[in-house]
């Protein structure tokens, strides 16, 4: 299944390369069982990508080259994506990716999971960077930091959502940067504007998957608040980085109804 997907995706990529443009392929070739709505497909088609990132650029931004040599990791993300789609009741959802502690690799998982969703030509994904202190996601957007983003949007009523979403070098993957505010965003996350934003992101395109890169749920109120705002939460456990007890505590905080899955990240021995 996974290898079949990869072949189709590779074919699509070649097609993109032939057209010399990074614009979307209008005639979607997808294995997704759910047919894209007419409006969604049209929107997807209108999406533009500034420049496709080369494998080196991808690596620099902490993104996997899904067609590169790290097939095990790539396939793990693909399978995770597929499993999530299967598990989710809705056509699209807002997913919080959080960790059991700092340094769990949450941003890496969120970023690549978003990229994995975007691999499907019929789907798009938007990565919302809620990790204010963490600057790794800022490499996803042009310029080096200081880009207006989520916190600016939440503070400034006049800002529009379309001003917020930034294109990336990966097809169908968009990014909402964290913004210029680096701390004390907890109050902003509880504001109705945040809920409104998430509603818009989910509601505007039925094929768009919104993925939030959220701080750890343990020892961080922001993580918990954001987790509660989302449809589902994916818990990232660093390999040999947290005890079972800690993982259990994090799972309790998230709650069984919201927890969609747990991922052991950065396993040195490869996919089991």
């Amino acid at each position: 299944m996974a290898s079949e997907l990869t072949k189709i995706e590779e074919a699509l990529r070649k097609l993109q390369a032939q057209s010399g443009d990074s614009s979307e392929v209008s005639t979607a070739v997808s294995t997704d069982t759910r047919p894209a709505t007419r409006r969604g497909s049209a929107d997807i088609g209108r999406m533009t990508t500034p420049e496709t990132w080369s494998p080196a650029q991808l690596e620099k931004r902490g993104l996997l080259d899904f067609f590169g040599p790290e097939r095990q990791a790539a396939n793990a993300f693909r399978q995770l994506r597929t499993s999530l789609v299967h598990r989710a009741a809705e056509s699209n959802f807002v997913l919080a990716v959080t960790g059991v502690r700092q340094g769990s690799g949450t941003s890496f998982v969120a970023r690549n999971l978003a990229a994995a969703f975007a691999l499907d030509p019929t789907k798009t994904s938007v990565l919302v960077d809620c990790e204010l202190g963490d600057r790794t996601n800022s490499r996803m957007t042009p310029g080096s930091g200081g880009v207006r983003g989520l916190t600016d949007y939440l503070r400034h009523e006049e800002m529009r959502v379309d001003q917020l979403i930034q294109p990336t070098g990966v097809s169908r993957l968009r990014v909402i940067p964290a913004g210029t505010l680096t701390q004390g965003a907890g109050e902003l996350y509880t504001s109705p504007r945040m809920q409104e934003l998430l509603g818009q992101l989910r509601g505007r395109y039925p094929d768009r998957f919104t993925i939030l890169d959220v701080p750890p749920v343990i020892d961080n109120a922001d993580g918990r608040i954001l987790s509660e705002l989302c449809d589902y939460t994916l818990l990232v456990v660093p390999y040999a980085g947290a005890s079972e007890a800690r993982v259990g505590r994090a799972m309790d905080i998230v709650g069984a109804d919201r927890l969609i899955g747990t991922v052991v990240n950065n396993d040195p021995g490869g996919q089991s």
Partner: peptide
């Protein structure tokens, strides 16, 4: 003896209730 989680099998959850995946280390160039 190390109690830290190294395998999804040790995540304290009932089998099938949540999705359990391992993401292997992605090596840089």
């Amino acid at each position: 003896l190390d109690p830290r989680v190294r395998d999804v099998a040790h995540i304290p959850v009932e089998t099938g209730s949540v999705l359990l995946t391992t993401i292997p280390h992605a090596r840089t160039r």
